[in-house]
Design a protein around this nucleic acid. Structure first.
Lengths: 360, 360
DNA sequence: AATGCCTATGTCAACGATGACATTGTACGC
DNA sequence: GCGTACAATGTCATCGTTGACATAGGCATT
């Protein structure tokens, strides 16, 4: 029998730090240091270890890493409802940001109620280093408490108006809405309508307040600023899903009630592209021309808004950058980080601007 | 000093199998058996252990489980491009199916090229028990080889026409297209157009072939069946993303070329809702009434198709069920499982059926 | 009664990386 | 020339669970 300590038969074919170390002429501990980018590795050693890792196609065993270091190297998107409208961009952004930092991205759909019912269970079992919370969960103080309790770090995605505690990544929705108001005003509109978002969300508040404030500032008559809400959104996934299917209809209904006013608006700003699309479809159904008879704008810059006829005027939050910041906060920590309001971009399209599509 | 073996100070506040065992009066090993649902636990023991787990809010340490048992308890959605159109439903379905089986869902965006360039790296580092491969990767034999090489199990999502090797979850696209053809034929249409999907995907082939075959069977003149493709889709995420933004425009261009034919079609079937939406928007831009002048149908039953005006006639694959089967195959294995073609559902809407929306 | 078999449970070590701590070597200051 | 400091690396035990194997008791079979 060889006295040379050959690698023991392992269940997985994978190389371990010790295999790499043996090949590079160092201990496994040193290989570990290289993996973790610890300082005080001599350049020569670094080189040899890296070469050995490449030769053996070494990939660190995440389970062992997690077990020993009590980190999971994964982040979680925790959200009440995965919709079609901007989640693709959110998930894409998170996925890339995670890849870039060598983290896994876990998706967990979970209503506040679920999270509350079994916070210990669900939140602990997530087994993750941190969570990204998307708008539907933004104002959920109890959930944040539960997360604090189990010691999970998190980042909320929120509009700048959000006075909430705790780390958050902000978009400057207010500024975007101001730009939109200027655009509509410059087109000559004087009577305005707003289709508000789901109640209880800071984004709903932020966009609505900014719309009204900007209009007043521009010189609009208070009587010519109308706002209609949509019916309350239950956060259970089933209900949200059902509503996801009908949110556009809610936009249509809201349009109806705006048009029923004595002095109906000529320009409408909807909380989201989804509501705006419903409003556009409803207007078309009523035989109205958009934007000829009524201008309609949304928020999100969803792919879909760009595909309908007429393409929506909308406001684009830089989701990719925001997700990048979110992941960075979770990985690197938020300590001492200044609040940054990610600027949003007004994207003018034919749904408000007649110059885009000459009527046939 | 107490001789009672109190729980040692642990880094995390969490209870371990031993803590639970002590409380329940059994060994940690038995607790482990309960966790894993192993047989041959006496009912009394089972009861006490479960009670102890509840009392201590015990959650098994995933890292330790993974390390010891060489499983990761997580599944991965591996896809080239996360789009807005049906990914929400796919991810929702996977997320729930995973939750139900106590698995984590990891999302990995990854082009074939990326996967090929560093298969060892990327695929190994995924650290997952199995992968769900979505259409853009369906025909990627090299990727499947790479997955086989690293011993990762996987399930493809595919149309039934796909002759590919290996486990897959099938939807019966052909049957759905046949139903659609019957619907269009019954409405009196006799000249047809098809907007084909991205080249090289089995779904493109399946839907296109079934459309033509069903029409011929119904008695259509071969000269009155037109098909136009869309330009080739590169699978790099950047390119896909860019195309994601413009796929609807591709639908519009395709419509133009169908309308330019000597005997233009009166009914059009697009490979996807996304292409169909572009075609509808283009038709409306040209001043055509949908479905008055031209009927347009899609595929996917995306939320968005239901929101535009007119709402799309489309074909609904039961994605939630399919994702459930996919997860089940990965968790429980595919051995001896018969192929099941998930039936799809024709959903008729006003984009083909004039009875839905009386012209104003 | 001895044998075998099965059920229910326990003991022990090991999965692979890393925290805590130890050790060597080298440079620097006085 | 000796102490101190720090850089570079090694040793060892450990994270929490489970695979491999052992054991104790019960029942049936011969």
């Amino acid at each position: 029998m060889s006295s040379d300590p050959l690698p023991k038969a392992r269940r997985t074919g994978k190389a371990t730090v010790h295999d790499v170390g043996r090949l590079a002429g160092v201990s496994g501990r040193t290989v570990s240091r290289v993996i973790n980018g610890e300082p005080s590795i001599s350049p020569g050693t670094l080189e040899r270890v890296k070469a050995a890792m490449a030769t053996l196609e070494f990939e660190p065993n995440m389970a062992a890493r997690s077990l020993r270091s009590a980190r999971s190297f994964s982040l979680c998107l925790l959200t009440a409802h995965i919709s079609n409208f901007y989640y693709a961009e959110v998930i894409r952004g998170l996925s890339r940001a995670c890849s870039a930092r060598d983290r896994r991205l876990i998706i967990q759909e979970c209503s506040i109620q679920q999270a509350m019912r079994a916070p210990a269970g669900l939140l602990k079992s997530l087994n993750t280093d941190g969570c990204v919370l998307l708008p539907p969960l933004c104002d959920a103080a109890p959930l944040l408490d539960a997360l604090d309790d189990v010691g999970l770090s998190y980042v909320r995605i929120a509009p700048a108006a959000d006075p909430g505690r705790s780390p958050a990544v902000f978009s400057d929705d207010e500024a975007g809405v101001r730009d939109l108001v200027r655009h509509l005003w410059d087109l000559g509109h004087r009577r305005f309508g707003h289709i508000a978002g789901p109640p209880g969300h800071y984004a709903t508040l932020a966009r609505s307040r900014s719309f009204t404030a900007s209009l007043l500032e521009a010189g609009a008559e208070p009587a010519d600023i109308a706002e209609v809400g949509m019916r309350s959104v239950d956060d259970s996934p089933e209900e949200s899903r059902r509503l996801g299917r009908t949110l556009a209809y809610a936009g249509g209904l809201a349009l109806d009630s705006l048009l029923a006013r004595p002095r109906p608006p000529t320009a409408i700003f909807a909380f989201s592209d989804e509501l705006a699309i419903g409003a556009v479809a409803r207007a078309q159904h009523l035989g109205l021309s958009v934007p000829g008879d009524i201008a309609i704008a949304g928020f999100d810059d969803s792919d879909i808004g760009a595909m309908i006829h007429p393409a929506l005027t909308t406001i684009r939050p830089p989701l990719a950058k925001m997700m990048d910041e979110a992941v960075d906060r979770l990985v690197a920590g938020s300590a001492g980080r200044p609040i940054f309001r990610h600027p949003v971009e007004l994207r003018v399209g034919p749904s408000t601007d007649p110059r885009f599509h000459p009527e046939p």
